[in-house]
Design a protein around this nucleic acid. Structure first.
Lengths: 132, 132, 132, 132
DNA sequence: GTGGTCTAGACCACC
DNA sequence: GTGGTCTAGACCACG
């Protein structure tokens, strides 16, 4: 799970870690009541400074998605799934929106952008070319 | 021309200046052989430190889009238009690709992402609803 | 290491710093994966403004010789040694070529230039006279 | 004569113009008592700002190689040939010396530099490969 | 007038 | 601690 942080596109590592946790909650890979992976373990797995993971967890606590359990660790909060689902959708929406805005900002004709859009969208589609 | 840098989205100013120049070259607002606006003039217009503009121009020189003419200014290089055009489409392609990757990384079902994609794409389309 | 920038021959400081780093990489004084000296440290050692060192490092990044590691420093890139080696010989080749062109441009007979060439080449040769 | 200034290697134009004049005097293309080309004419031929040519001529006057003749122009001074000859040799010597110093400064083994040196020297030799 | 170099110092995000 | 961004202002060479 969430071993990979994707490309280092300039976004802070802690933010990407937090996002991954959110998506894992939304996808019910992590369920309410379960413990999030420990800071030490996760930092080893990601080959990242423990402080960085701690920072991600701190942010998640601030958002009410993780709750500390004394002497045990951090537990996924009860209402977390729903909140993460909408976060997830809004995340996607925001990314797409700003990508489109930037693309249009170049002055390229919309048709040309749309062509690229189709190409790139298909490119990552695992079902593409399979059949039907 | 190119007076506006758009929203301060966190990207560095010098990068946005460089982009504007690129798009101006690609759109033939600035043509090869012409001089780019002087550092001092542009810095006044944008209410920005001259060093910031200079940095943008330096980067553009490194990409071979501007050429210094001693004591005169910076001239748009001869092959600049073509290079800018390709830079522009690669820029768009890259943005879309990483947006899609991030969107897929959330674990949202592809169909749902596609829905959002359509919504957001139409949202910015100035011609939308015209033909209806 | 690389404490000395040599004579102030009119070339910009940042360029000489960048050259030193390149030569250090080519000579494997700095190896891929290691961190380059920090901007602040090096600027102190060279009694130079940190921005000046930063500019040198920025140029080296643009050449793909250094890679940023967030919050940690700048790391010598993996392919850097080879690239530096070729940079180094191309540097030498270019200097010699333009020196020869300029020399020929004076209209001095080639034989006379060759004489001076031999004199000057021997002049700096530490082994000269040894074998005699 | 001296229509070409060679590559714009970063050296100031006025300096290169002055050099060309010196070499022309040394090679007796321009002889003492003759008039140097007028500022206007030369600036047109070189496609250069007249101020730039004027600056070169000013420097040459300061060195005593050109003398103003009232209402007529600038005349090559009487002792100019000899002085230019030695200037020419020293110019070549200086260029070669600094090129060698820089080449050695890279840390490349002397043998390797010498190889490049031979290659580059032959490269510009018009007699090379002709025969004998 | 032009760009280029350099200094000094502030502020930021990240690890 | 690290690098990155930006400002302010001085100084230089060139045309």
């Amino acid at each position: 799970m969430l071993i990979d942080l994707g490309e280092s596109d300039g976004r802070p590592i802690y933010g990407r870690i937090a996002d991954r946790i959110k998506f894992a909650i939304a996808g019910e890979v992590l369920r309410p009541g379960e413990l999030a992976p420990s800071v030490r373990e996760l930092s080893k797995r990601l080959v990242v400074n423990p402080n960085t993971v701690a920072r991600a967890y701190r942010d998640l606590q601030a958002e009410g998605l993780l709750e500390p359990v004394r002497g045990t660790g951090l537990q996924i909060a009860s209402g977390a799934v729903e909140r993460c689902r909408s976060i997830r959708v809004e995340f996607v929406r925001g990314r797409l929106r700003s990508a489109f805005e930037e693309a249009r900002g170049t002055g390229l004709p919309a048709g040309e952008i749309e062509t690229i859009l189709h190409e790139e969208w298909r490119r990552g589609d695992p079902n593409d070319g399979k059949g039907a």
